[in-house]
Design a protein around this nucleic acid. Structure first.
Lengths: 246, 246
DNA sequence: CGCTGCCTTGACACGCCTCAACGAGCGTGG
DNA sequence: CCACGCTCGTTGAGGCGTGTCAAGGCAGCG
């Protein structure tokens, strides 16, 4: 039984081998977390690159807005997820990041990350992996938005969140806390809150999900996954081959 | 006048400083290109990681398919674009890659890339940048699919391709070769070929684009960009700060 | 000459959006 | 203690955007 409370370490160790020293280093990286209230922005589109940010607790989101005010969420950030591992290389960030619930956020100066990466090739590789998984998730979302119907999109998202939350110990086999409001779900799935409501109703009436009091329960995971054709490959949660020493 | 014919180098030099040696190294990396016919697959979903692939000429695409046979294109690969810089880290690839037109493809063994990256921090950074731009493009596409109407999506794609092709010298200010068929456009934009046809007609009748004989002309770029609210920031085509030596 | 691939157009159906109203829960203040 | 306002969820009616199905046109090509 490992008493890992740091979600980043927990996530990475699910697929990668890390030494005790690696864990200490990562833990130190995550030390001073600050609390950010729900619905606050952490980074605004157009900001110059600055400290990196890591979610230690709570739900956050990447989003873009159109001039007419409509919002599209292009990423849901869970505990253990980096917000902007890339901003230093890209320069001006091209999307905003904000909290969905109250969060614990760590601000990390770029130099600190660079040091860690240079010292431990294992951590470097694991972080690279995490960033590539994020990219793979974007591709899967694109498939959902382009080719799946509303009900399936919703079911697919629920399946994804279940696995991602499990990988940081925040979901049991059949249920997890789901703090997103229907409006948030709508902005993730490219639809309206009204239609999210109806789709949710459809899933409920099929007995596929139960969502009460911000807690989602999936009575029969296999059935839900079959319903929306969920294939978890894109999350790459299976253990990686040990990297041959650099 | 630089006689750079290698699209990868041309793309990277648009935003990054590379030394002459860097260019020689990159050129050597791209040497034996092979011709692949139109409509061929280069990588299939589920393949184990193998050589990396780079497009030297022609149009290729990343795509995913659903069990019902519908296809979603999750990336258009132009000359100078890597297909799978990431496959080694992720393991099993989670999407397929195929050609849209006849292409020249280079197969690069992972070790060769690693060597290059280790020797030149400038190249390493430029390649990292390229990979992050791809990710930013995914986010912008997600915004399009989720929150823009069909006509705007189409116009937005045309604007994006114009800039990306310009960065490798394959587009003039107002026009470029556009080999995608309407079915391909449909699979990029998450719609049907019939509706692509109608949207194209709408753009044509507005005088916003002219598409004849696989060549796209944009009479008034500003007007088209305004029409679909195109903001090129996400392509990060502006010159990067010189990286401070690692 | 008749394929075949791609574009084009029309009629109709359906998924999802819009607008609008109402209800439940909850903190706040009189 | 209850009225009040607020946020969020729920539901209905009607309309629009896009999909589906089907037919025909045009160019390239064996």
């Amino acid at each position: 039984m490992d008493d890992v409370t740091n979600p980043l370490i927990r996530k990475l160790m699910g697929t990668h081998h890390l030494t005790d020293v690696d864990c200490v280093v990562l833990n130190r990286l995550c030390t001073p977390g600050r609390i950010v209230g729900a619905g606050q922005d952490i980074i605004l589109q157009g900001d110059p690159p600055n400290d990196l940010h890591l979610v230690l607790d709570g739900f956050a989101h990447r989003y873009k807005v159109l001039p007419d005010g409509s919002r599209q969420i292009v990423g849901v950030l869970l505990p253990g997820d980096f917000c902007d591992l890339h901003s230093e290389v890209l320069g001006v960030v091209d999307h905003s990041i904000g909290t969905l619930t109250e969060c614990v956020i760590v601000d990390i100066p770029p130099v600190a990350i660079n040091e860690v990466i240079e010292r431990s090739p294992r951590i470097a590789r694991a972080l690279w992996w995490a960033s590539l998984v994020d990219e793979g998730t974007l591709r899967e979302w694109l498939l959902s938005l382009g080719r799946r119907e509303a009900v399936e999109r919703l079911a697919h998202l629920f399946c994804e969140l279940r696995l991602r939350l499990r990988s940081v110990g925040l979901a049991s086999a059949h249920s997890y806390g789901m703090p997103l409001r229907q409006t948030d779900l709508a902005d993730v799935l490219g639809m309206t809150n009204v239609h999210v409501n109806r789709s949710l109703k459809a899933l409920r009436e099929e007995g596929l999900v139960i969502l009460v009091q911000r807690r989602l329960t999936i009575p029969d995971v296999d059935r839900l996954q079959a319903f929306c054709d969920f294939d978890p490959t894109y999350l790459h949660l299976d253990r990686q081959q040990p990297a041959d020493g650099a």
